[in-house]
Lab assay of single mutants.
Amino acid sequence: AITFRFEGQEKAKKFYEKLMRQNLEATIHIHGDEVHVTVH
């Protein structure tokens, strides 16, 4: 698994949606202002 870190939720959401379109499995974790997107 690879984890990407984002400042702010907007960028993270766009990235997450892009992964979903590519049929990749990903989970999102929100830590205050920092958002972690883990790709499995």
Rank of each mutant, 00 (worst) to 15 (best):
K11G: 10
F15Q: 01
E25V: 13
I2T: 06
F6I: 04
T27L: 04
D33N: 14
H31S: 11
E7I: 13
K18M: 14
A26F: 12
V37R: 00
A26D: 01
T3Y: 09
Q9P: 13
K18C: 15
N23H: 10
Q9Y: 15
F15N: 00
A1I: 12
G32F: 07
H29C: 12
M20T: 07
I2E: 05
L24A: 04
A12I: 03
N23Y: 10
N23R: 06
E10A: 08
I30E: 05
G32D: 06
F15K: 01
R21N: 09
F4W: 07
E25N: 14
K18G: 07
I30W: 12
Y16T: 03
I28M: 09
N23W: 08
K14Y: 08
H40S: 09
A1Q: 12
Y16A: 05
Q9I: 15
K14G: 04
K18N: 10
V35S: 02
E10V: 06
A1G: 14
L19W: 02
E25Q: 14
F6V: 02
V37Q: 00
F15V: 02
Y16F: 10
A1T: 14
H29S: 13
E25G: 07
K18P: 01
A1H: 15
A26E: 00
A12W: 04
M20E: 03
L19F: 02
L24Q: 04
V39E: 02
K14W: 09
K18Q: 11
H36R: 06
R21P: 01
V39W: 09
I30P: 03
E17S: 03
F4A: 09
R5K: 13
H29M: 09
K11Q: 15
G8I: 11
Y16G: 01
K13E: 10
H31E: 13
H29L: 09
M20I: 13
L24Y: 10
T3H: 08
I30T: 06
Q22L: 15
R5D: 08
F6M: 02
Q9A: 13
V37F: 02
V37K: 00
R5Q: 11
D33E: 10
T27I: 06
K11A: 15
A26T: 03
E34D: 04
I28P: 00
F15A: 02
Q9M: 15
I30G: 02
V35T: 04
K14D: 11
H29W: 10
V39Q: 03
F6T: 02
L24E: 02
E25I: 14
Q9K: 09
T38A: 04
G8N: 15
H36W: 15
N23I: 04
H40Q: 09
L19P: 00
L19Y: 02
V35D: 00
R5A: 11
R21I: 08
G8P: 01
E34F: 13
K14V: 10
T3N: 03
K13W: 14
G8F: 10
E10M: 05
K18E: 14
R21A: 14
H31N: 10
A12F: 04
I30R: 07
N23V: 04
N23S: 06
K13Q: 14
M20C: 05
T38P: 00
F15R: 00
D33M: 09
E17Y: 04
I2F: 07
E25K: 14
V39P: 04
Q9H: 13
E17I: 07
I30L: 11
R5S: 11
K11Y: 08
H40F: 14
G8W: 07
H29G: 03
V35I: 11
F4V: 15
A12Y: 03
R5G: 07
F4C: 15
R21M: 11
H36N: 03
Q22V: 06
R5V: 15
K18Y: 15
F6Q: 01
R21Y: 06
K13C: 15
H31R: 08
F15W: 04
E7K: 14
I30S: 05
D33C: 07
L19Q: 02
K14R: 11
E7M: 11
H40P: 05
A1S: 14
N23P: 02
A1V: 13
R5T: 13
N23Q: 08
N23D: 06
F15P: 00
H40W: 14
H31K: 09
K11T: 12
V37H: 00
E34M: 11
H36G: 01
E25M: 14
R21G: 08
L24M: 10
V39S: 02
E34P: 01
L19K: 01
I30K: 05
K18D: 12
F15G: 00
E17F: 04
A12H: 01
A1F: 14
A12G: 04
F15H: 01
I30C: 09
Q22I: 09
I2V: 11
F6S: 01
L19S: 01
I28W: 06
H31I: 14
K14L: 12
E34V: 13
I30H: 08
E7F: 13
V35P: 00
K11C: 15
L19E: 01
E25D: 11
G32K: 08
L19D: 00
E10W: 05
K14M: 11
E10S: 07
T27V: 06
T3Q: 04
A12M: 03
I28K: 00
K11P: 12
L19V: 08
F6G: 02
L24W: 08
K14I: 12
K11S: 14
E10K: 05
K14N: 08
T38R: 05
A26H: 02
T27N: 06
T3G: 02
K14S: 09
V37E: 00
F6H: 01
N23M: 06
Q9V: 15
R21V: 07
Q22C: 15
I30M: 08
E25W: 09
F4K: 10
A12L: 03
